[in-house]
């Protein structure tokens, strides 16, 4: 096992110590970042979304910024602003918090649609266009957005087209009773995250991302992925099947998962592991306003499509 792989497992071990009882979500989050995707954490307040995001940033050794989204937050508050400098008689660009390596966008659905779309455009293009000039964002660049469930009052839920920009959506859920007890006994999360040391650095993250691209994808696996996608497009109970972009994302996420699992090629298991997170927010059953129904749809999808032999 080479150094990179060793540091990867070391960072996972470190994260496991901080975020208790959520090994699957942790790995999914890491896989999402390694697959160059943005992550949406969706759950009721207080289950540790922010903790997870901060822990990720610290372990990966990335520069991090945190923005608490509110309904009066303006796009300039996120992206930055051009200010007229009297001395130089020119506009000077003051970069906003988005110019970082890991942006934690807390409660992204509280912001107005304008601010949301400004952020999402930056996510998609990896740059900020303002007043006719473009400013590239640093690499790597991740957004970990957290969101409260839709039914909360005073929120602007992300429309489907913008949800598509997030590679994965993960829910943390309440901890198991035994773990909850442990959390209750604990003095506070700061004590935990404070003790974390950076295991990786930005260069290592970029190298790992490159390695994700090298994971082999066999034709048989593509058959399987195609069968899955085709099935969602045929399924009459869904409003919309998976888009080609979603398909690409699925393969990328599965590669990252395979890397985490130490597989030399992507296995159907890897696709199955990431599918709920990748497809859950993109598949909306007909007649339901409830986006959580996507989870049942994914389970049904996995049960319906056989793995080619």
């Amino acid at each position: 096992m080479d150094r990179l792989a060793a540091s990867l497992s070391a960072s996972l071990a470190a994260l496991d110590r901080v975020i208790l009882g959520k090994p699957v979500q942790l790995r999914l989050a890491l896989a999402c970042l390694l697959a160059r995707g943005h992550l949406l954490l969706e759950d009721v307040p207080g289950v540790g979304k922010t903790t997870l995001a901060q822990a990720l940033a610290q372990v990966l050794g990335l520069a991090t910024q945190r923005v608490q989204f509110t309904s009066d937050l303006l796009p300039a508050d996120v992206l930055g602003v051009s200010i007229f400098d009297r001395h130089s008689q020119a506009f000077e660009f003051r970069p906003g918090p988005v110019f970082t390596q890991l942006l934690l966008a807390d409660e992204v659905n509280r912001a107005s649609p304008r601010t949301q779309s400004a952020l999402l455009e930056a996510m998609e293009e990896q740059q900020v266009s303002l007043d006719g000039s473009t400013h590239a964002l640093p690499a790597p660049f991740f957004v970990v957005a957290t969101q409260n469930p839709l039914e909360q009052a005073g929120t602007y839920p992300l429309p489907e087209s913008q949800l598509d920009r997030f590679l994965m959506r993960i829910s943390l859920g309440y901890p198991a009773p035994a773990l909850e007890r442990e959390v209750l006994q604990d003095s506070g999360r700061h004590a935990r995250t404070g003790g974390l040391e950076a295991v990786l650095d930005p260069a290592a993250v970029l190298a790992l991302q490159a390695r994700v691209g090298e994971i082999h994808v066999a034709p048989l696996l593509l058959d399987y992925v195609q069968a899955l996608i085709a099935h969602t497009r045929r399924d009459a109970t869904l409003q919309l099947g998976l888009s080609p972009r979603a398909g690409q994302g699925l393969v990328r996420a599965a590669r990252a998962w395979a890397l985490l699992q130490g597989h030399s090629g992507v296995l159907p298991e890897d696709v199955q592991a990431v599918l709920p997170a990748v497809a859950g927010h993109r598949l909306v059953p007909r007649g339901h306003r409830d986006r959580d129904a996507g989870r049942d749809v994914v389970a049904a999808l996995l049960a319906a499509v056989p793995v080619p032999a």
């Binding site: 296995l267 159907p268 298991e269 199955q272 049960a303 793995v307």
Partner: peptide, 20 residues
């Protein structure tokens, strides 16, 4: 093999990856 496993009580082996 998948069919033999199904007869033995493994649920939906057609949908499982090899290691699983």
């Amino acid at each position: 093999l998948r069919e033999a496993l199904a007869r033995g009580g493994v649920a939906s082996p057609q949908q499982a990856g090899p290691l699983d």
